[in-house]
Computed example of a mutant assay.
Amino acid sequence: MGERETWTTEEFGSSHEGAVGVLLADGSVPASVFFGMSSGVGGESVSQWSVYDGASAHGPRAAALRAVCSCGWNGPERRLDWGVIGERKLVEAAGGTADTCMEDWDAHTAEVEDSAIPLPEAVTALLAQLQEEVEKLAKTSPLAAVRAARRLEVTAGQVGYWPAHHARRDTTVEQAAAALGLNEDAARKLMARFGGWSPYR
């Protein structure tokens, strides 16, 4: 896959990395477009949706855009009307369609969050209060806020150690990934980080 703009959330990271995908008229996904260097040596493969405008130096003409996610989810097709687009640059003419794709992906990640194991309201409220207090502290004493953030890191490591070990004993990687809203590799690495073991053993 070539270079393109992607989106992630802080909690789910690369497990749910989104982007605007392209479909051709036959329903297929086009290959990346290679842009060579002016020197003739090297270049870059690009799969950004806006290069698929059918121009000679770009990729084939896109028939539709849709949100895609690294988890395998695909959003609804958003058809492009080339009669309306005309001679305008695709990046300008279909910018609104691309924004709609991002909204589709936002809805997808909201569903992922809803399907993850729920946190008690008391814990959610405490976490929100902690964030608010540290942000407030940062306005008057940035170094104190940094120390508070460091203390939170230490606390997270302490409170996550035994739960990670118990979860490893009682659940499969597949179950942990589903509960955390992550792919299996990310769930394995997260559990290993909190539990203090190698993710490769």
Rank of each mutant, 00 (worst) to 15 (best):
M1Q: 06
M1H: 08
M1E: 11
M1W: 08
M1G: 08
E3Y: 14
E3N: 12
E5D: 14
T6R: 12
T6N: 09
W7S: 12
W7P: 01
W7Y: 15
T8P: 08
T8H: 10
E11L: 13
F12D: 02
G13K: 14
S15L: 03
H16V: 06
H16D: 07
H16P: 05
V20Q: 05
G21W: 07
G21A: 07
A25T: 12
D26K: 12
D26Q: 11
G27K: 03
S28I: 07
S28E: 05
A31N: 15
S32R: 13
V33S: 02
V33L: 01
F34C: 05
F35H: 14
G36H: 09
G36K: 11
S39H: 11
G40P: 09
G42L: 06
G42S: 08
G43A: 03
G43D: 01
E44M: 11
V46K: 07
S47V: 13
Q48R: 08
W49Q: 00
V51L: 04
Y52C: 01
D53C: 01
G54K: 00
H58W: 00
A62N: 01
A64P: 06
A64M: 04
R66L: 15
C69W: 00
C71K: 02
N74H: 15
E77P: 13
W82F: 09
G83P: 08
I85D: 02
I85E: 02
G86A: 00
G86P: 07
E87C: 06
E92Y: 10
A93C: 12
G95C: 07
G96Y: 05
T97Y: 01
A98N: 01
A98K: 00
T100W: 03
C101W: 03
C101R: 01
C101S: 05
M102R: 13
E103V: 13
W105A: 03
D106K: 15
D106F: 13
H108P: 12
H108A: 09
T109Q: 07
A110Y: 07
E111S: 11
E111K: 14
E113A: 15
D114W: 08
D114G: 06
D114E: 15
S115M: 04
A116Y: 06
L119N: 02
P120V: 03
T124I: 06
L126V: 08
L130R: 11
E135I: 09
L137N: 04
P142Q: 03
L143Q: 10
L143I: 09
L143T: 06
A144H: 10
A144V: 04
A144E: 13
A145V: 06
A145E: 04
A145P: 07
A148W: 08
R150L: 12
L152H: 10
V154D: 14
T155G: 09
Q158H: 14
Q158N: 13
Y161W: 12
Y161T: 10
Y161F: 13
Y161P: 00
W162H: 11
P163F: 00
P163M: 03
A164N: 02
A164W: 09
H165C: 12
R169P: 02
R169S: 12
T171Q: 06
T172I: 10
E174G: 10
A178T: 04
A179H: 05
G181A: 01
G181R: 05
G181P: 04
G181V: 00
L182R: 10
N183H: 14
N183K: 04
E184P: 04
A187V: 05
K189W: 01
L190E: 03
M191D: 00
F194H: 14
G195W: 08
W197I: 10
S198C: 10
P199G: 02
Y200K: 11
R201W: 07
